[in-house]
Design a protein around this nucleic acid. Structure first.
Length: 651
DNA sequence: CAGTGAGCGAGCTTCCGCTTGACTT
């Protein structure tokens, strides 16, 4: 074989192979092939932070295969992703192969014939500065993670972890909980008037009190509300001003990983993990583009195809004159791929149902991706919005109604109501300025301000992305990590911190405020940019961070006491010694242990009862977990009764 | 997802980011 081409994913390899023909053998590296060792820190902090790279056990087979192929090939084309990690993967491959001068680095942002021909006609050298930026990122994360975690083992509890990303995600959850705890509801009142257009009985509507003497009115309590009600009862109502305007609603851009995960959570109730598993299958079958991306770009071909589709199947009036161009606001976006979109817009979601291997949920996710992409290239929706100001003595009441004039993209993607909680449209009777209205009823209502909501998967991912923390490939794993460590628990699909999570956050905020600062990652990215553009070398940048950090670790190690975790006592006595039991977190999850430990070593498991009898013996069924943490339904009489099931047994 | 369980409180744990089959019952 003359030419060996290496990309990251096997699906991409397959597609690329079709374009390149038989003179090129295309192989996938499956991501990184070399990494720092898992067993030790792997960075020589005394010698310019030299990283020790090894081939991880699970990559050795792949690495050997590639090595063998590389030996035989004449030219090696390193065609990994055009971003920081991709450049590093290319370099690691080169180091792995250890052959001189046979390399060509090629980059392309889309897999089209033109883009590929262009790329292969203009190979370049590896970008050492970009590689160094990646090494700095890798080494920094390793130093932070592998220095902080052992400190937590010593000061808090063994087995814990801390890192640039997970510790900030945890902090967000802990601080939100504190906001909620500290929240004091404020009373306020709204006052609405039900009014009638004179002479037309059916034409009544509700207007809200907004101003008094031209100033915004806030009603704090019942006394104030009563006062306004009294005054308004005697007032005359007259239409003062009608303003009418056209309001356009713009379609959302096509999906990135983060917005797809958010929409799938809000619209379909999927976890981020589930969404990614489904998307992976759609991608491997060639139905969608790559699902780990932060880009909003659409290829020229995709745009042409979708415009064609809109014009032909939806309607000419739904097709804007020009294609829409979306740009990401994120500074850290690497834009190595396209936005997530169907690869063939002509494949309607309904048709996917009939394809072997596609489950209902695959279809539902594809449907959402397809609609979002098509809508993103459609005309705006247009509403007629009418605002009516009504005078009643010194008061102003207002009512806003809107009617849909043109549905535009909304005919495809539907309202984003579920995602944004927007109000529906309100239709107003025909009114004219100066018209007198009749008061039917005054409607004072008491309200209280509400605390912020706990984060769910969607809102946490959104927040992390806003802070530039984490990457498309890591959003879902971050959520798993903080749960696996028992830092947080999901209660009704929302994250709530455990006493352990609170203790860890407080420890980190107290001693390492810079690392768990919400801006830490953003400033790291700035520093990495300077390495990538050649202004700085990576080792001094890491040194500037590491020297004070190392000192602080040592100080805290010597000075800080062991952290007490708030115990969670339950209303149950120890059958051995009579003391209270408390919740503990072990390798296999939560369990109850005696507060008298170490004098009393009593433990028992926590069982969630299910209200169905055991189909085998009629005993109680409880939810338990496997060693790996997967819940199942088992009989309480185990081991006498061996009944077990993944799904809830029927009554 | 094929994978189902009595222990955690003792001897090794841990990072982030890139990517899919791992390997055993």
């Amino acid at each position: 074989m003359q030419n060996l081409v290496i990309v990251e994913s096997p699906t991409k390899a397959k597609t690329l192979s079709k374009f390149l023909g038989s003179k090129y053998q295309v192989e996938a590296s499956m991501g990184h092939v070399r990494d720092l060792p898992k067993g030790d820190i792997g960075v020589d902090v005394e010698h310019d932070f030299a990283p020790k790279y090894i081939i991880p056990r699970d990559k050795s087979k792949k690495a050997n295969e590639l090595k063998k192929l590389a030996k035989e090939a004449k030219t090696l084309w390193l065609a990994t992703d055009p971003d920081r990690e991709g450049e590093a993967i290319a370099w690691h491959l080169k180091e792995l192969f250890n052959r001189k001068d046979a390399y060509k680095r090629v980059v392309f942002h889309e897999i089209t014939e033109d883009a590929i021909n262009e790329a292969f006609a203009h190979p370049r050298d590896l970008d050492k500065q970009l590689i160094d930026a990646q090494q700095a990122r890798r080494v920094l994360d390793r130093l932070v993670g592998y220095k902080l975690s052992p400190l937590l083992w010593k000061k808090v509890k063994s087995g814990l972890s801390a890192g640039r990303v997970q510790s900030v995600a945890l902090r967000l959850i802990v601080e939100r909980e504190r906001e909620i705890e500290a929240f004091k509801p404020q009373e306020y009142w709204s006052l609405e008037a039900e009014l009638e257009k004179k002479g037309e009985k059916a034409a009544n509507f509700v207007a809200a009190l907004v101003e008094q003497n031209g100033k915004k009115l806030a009603i704090k309590n019942q006394g104030e509300a009563d006062k306004h009600v009294k005054a308004l009862e005697k007032a005359d109502y007259q239409v003062a001003k009608i303003t009418q305007k056209e309001v356009k609603k713009y379609a959302a851009p096509p999906f990135t990983t983060s917005t797809m995960q958010q929409a799938a959570a809000n619209r379909l109730g999927f976890s981020a993990k589930r969404t990614m598993q489904l998307a992976q299958v759609l991608y491997e079958h060639g139905y969608i583009t790559y699902m780990r991306t932060d880009s909003l770009n659409l290829s020229a071909q995709a745009i042409a195809a979708v415009r064609d589709f809109i014009g032909q199947h939806i309607g000419k009036n739904y097709l804007p004159k020009e294609a829409k161009v979306y740009k990401t606001k994120s500074k850290v976006a690497q834009e190595a791929h396209e936005a997530i979109r169907p690869t063939n817009v002509k494949l309607a979601p309904d048709e996917l149902k009939n394809i072997e291997g596609m489950t209902r949920d695959h279809v539902r996710l594809y449907d959402m991706i397809w609609k979002r992409m098509v809508a993103s290239q459609m005309a705006e929706a247009v509403f007629d919005q009418k605002t009516v100001d009504i005078k009643a003595d010194s008061y102003t009441l207002r009512v806003t109604g809107s009617t849909l004039k043109f549905d535009g993209w909304m005919i495809v993607y539907g309202k984003i109501q579920d995602e944004e909680g927007e109000e529906g449209e309100k239709i107003l009777p025909e009114l004219t300025e100066g018209e007198i209205l009749k008061l039917l009823k005054l409607l004072p209502t008491q309200h209280f301000t509400e605390p912020p909501a706990r984060f769910n998967e969607a809102s946490l991912i959104k927040k992390l992305e806003e802070l530039s923390i984490g990457r498309p490939s890591t959003y879902a794993p971050i959520l798993s990590t903080i749960q696996e460590r028992f830092y947080v628990e999901k209660v009704e699909k929302r994250f709530s911190p455990t006493p352990l999570g609170i203790a860890v956050t407080d420890f980190l905020v107290k001693y390492f405020p810079n690392i768990v600062d919400y801006d830490f990652t953003a400033s790291m990215e700035d520093a990495l940019d300077n390495i990538a553009n050649g202004e700085d070398r990576w080792q001094p940048i890491i040194g500037t961070f590491y020297r004070p950090f190392e000192k602080k670790i040592k100080e805290v190690d010597e000075e800080a006491g062991r952290v007490a975790i708030k115990s969670e006592e339950v209303d149950k006595k120890c059958p051995k010694c009579g003391k209270n039991l408390q919740i503990k977190y072990g390798k296999f999850g939560k369990f109850l242990a005696c507060t008298g430990f170490p004098d009393c070593k009593y433990t028992e498991s926590i069982e969630e009862k299910v209200d169905v009898p055991c189909p085998d013996c009629g005993g109680e069924i409880v939810i338990r977990k496997t060693r790996r943490g997967r819940p199942f339904y088992g009989c309480k009489n185990w081991p006498n009764c061996k009944y077990a099931s993944w799904t809830k047994p029927k009554k």
